[in-house]
Amino acid sequence: MPIRIPDHLPARKTLEQEGVMVMDSSRAARQDIRPLQIGLLNLMPNKERTETQFARLIGSTPLQIDMTLVRITDHQSKHTSEDYLKTFYSTWEEVRERKFDGLIVTGAPIANIPFEEVKYWSEMLEIMNWTETNVHRTMFICWGAQAALHHFHGAKRYRMPQKAFGVFRHKLVGGPNPWLRGFSDSPMIPVSRYNDIDRDSLGDDLEILIDNEEIGLCMLRDKARPALYMLNHLEYDNRSLADEYDRDVKAGLNPEMPTNLFPGGDPTVEPENRWRSHAHLLFQNWINEIYQTTPYDPAQIGLVKQSP
C-alpha cells in the first residue's frame, strides 16, 4: 500500500523516483480501510531532507498510511521558509486534539544546550506528556530520544570525549522482541552525536536493545510506556554523514573523517549505504506492531492501557 503525503510536497518526486508508492487524497478515500495515522514531529533545520528520509521508510510498508508533518508551534525556522511550513506542516497546537497511531520525534541540532534552556522546552514537555494519551506508539530519535529519556526516566546525559561520527557496528543485546525481527546480530548503524546516556542512571523500566561498547547506547525499549528510544540514525541517506563532514571542512572546523563511511577512507569516493536494509526492517516492524495493536476506532487511543 502507498503512503499518503501532501500532494505537492517536494519529497513526493524523490519517493516516486525510488519506487515508493505515493497516494493522493481522492484515491485514498476510495479504499475501504482505515489508514494508520503517523505523525512526524520534525525538529531538524533541513525539513525537506528529513521528511524525505522518514517518508521513504514509512512508505515501504504494505499498509496505507497518512503521514502528518508537525512542527513546534512558536519556533521560527532559520532554514525553512514560513510559506513552506504553512503549506506542508501543522503546528502541534493544531494537532493536539487529534489521536495518532504512531509518532516519530526527530533529533535536533542543539546537543550542547541543557534541556531546560532550549527555547521550546516547555512545549516539548507538553508534547511528551501528550504522547501518553494521544499516541499509540512513539519513536524518539537522537536528541528527541535523549530529551524523552531525561523527562520520563531522569536519565543523565553526558558529553563524550569526542564526537561519535561515522558508521559503527553494533550488537543486539536485548531479549527476543518484535522491533528487531529480522536484524542481523551486528548491524552497521550511522552515528552523529556528542552525547551519550549514563548507563548508571537507567532504571529497570528500560531495556537496552542495541548497544556499542565503544560509542555507547543505540536503542532502548520503555517497559512502562509504548515508546522506543533510538539514539542513532538508521534513517540517514547515503550522503547525510558525508555532507555533514563537507560542511564542517568548509567551515574550517578540521573535523575527523567519519569512521567506516568512505570506501578506502577516501572522501572523494561516494559512500556506500550499509544500513538501508536494517532501516527498513526497523520501521516495518514498528509499523506492523502498531497495526496489530492499535484500536480500530482512533478515539480509543490512550483510553485503554496497552502493553509497552
Rank of each mutant, 00 (worst) to 15 (best):
N288G: 05
F115R: 00
R30D: 07
V191P: 08
M21D: 10
V191A: 05
E214G: 15
L253K: 12
L261I: 15
L228S: 08
A155M: 05
Q162I: 06
L36A: 04
A145L: 05
A145T: 03
I38N: 04
R157L: 05
P45D: 09
W121R: 14
E93V: 01
S184Y: 10
L149V: 07
D297M: 14
M230F: 10
E207T: 09
N238Q: 11
E94F: 05
V269W: 05
S192L: 03
I189R: 02
A145K: 06
R276E: 10
A108S: 14
V20Q: 01
G19E: 02
E16D: 02
M188I: 07
K156E: 05
R30K: 14
H278N: 11
D204C: 06
F165Y: 03
N46L: 03
D83R: 07
K119Y: 01
L282V: 02
I287Y: 10
M160I: 01
V135W: 07
F54R: 03
R30N: 09
Q162V: 06
Y84Q: 05
H278S: 15
G175L: 02
H150A: 13
L206T: 12
N254E: 14
I127C: 07
T87L: 09
V304Q: 11
L231C: 01
L103H: 09
N273Q: 04
P35S: 12
I127G: 00
E132G: 02
N285L: 06
L228C: 01
T138S: 14
G107I: 00
A11T: 04
Q37M: 06
L15D: 05
D204E: 11
P263M: 11
G102N: 13
L206E: 00
M257A: 07
E244D: 09
M219K: 13
L231S: 02
T61Y: 00
S277V: 13
E94S: 07
D66L: 02
A111L: 06
I58Q: 10
F115L: 04
L69A: 11
T50Y: 08
A108K: 12
N285M: 11
G203D: 02
L9F: 13
P35I: 08
N212S: 09
L206H: 08
M188P: 06
T52P: 08
V269H: 08
E289W: 11
Q306N: 08
W179E: 13
N232F: 04
S60Q: 12
R274G: 12
N46D: 04
L228W: 07
G174Q: 04
M219L: 15
V191E: 14
R157Y: 05
L303G: 11
L206I: 09
E94I: 03
T80C: 12
T131I: 02
M160A: 00
D205W: 02
E123T: 11
P298D: 03
D248H: 07
R225S: 08
I127R: 04
I208E: 15
K223P: 06
C142W: 13
I110Y: 07
P187K: 00
M1F: 07
N177Q: 00
L149S: 10
H233T: 02
K250G: 06
E126D: 15
S184G: 14
T52N: 10
I287F: 08
A108T: 12
R34E: 03
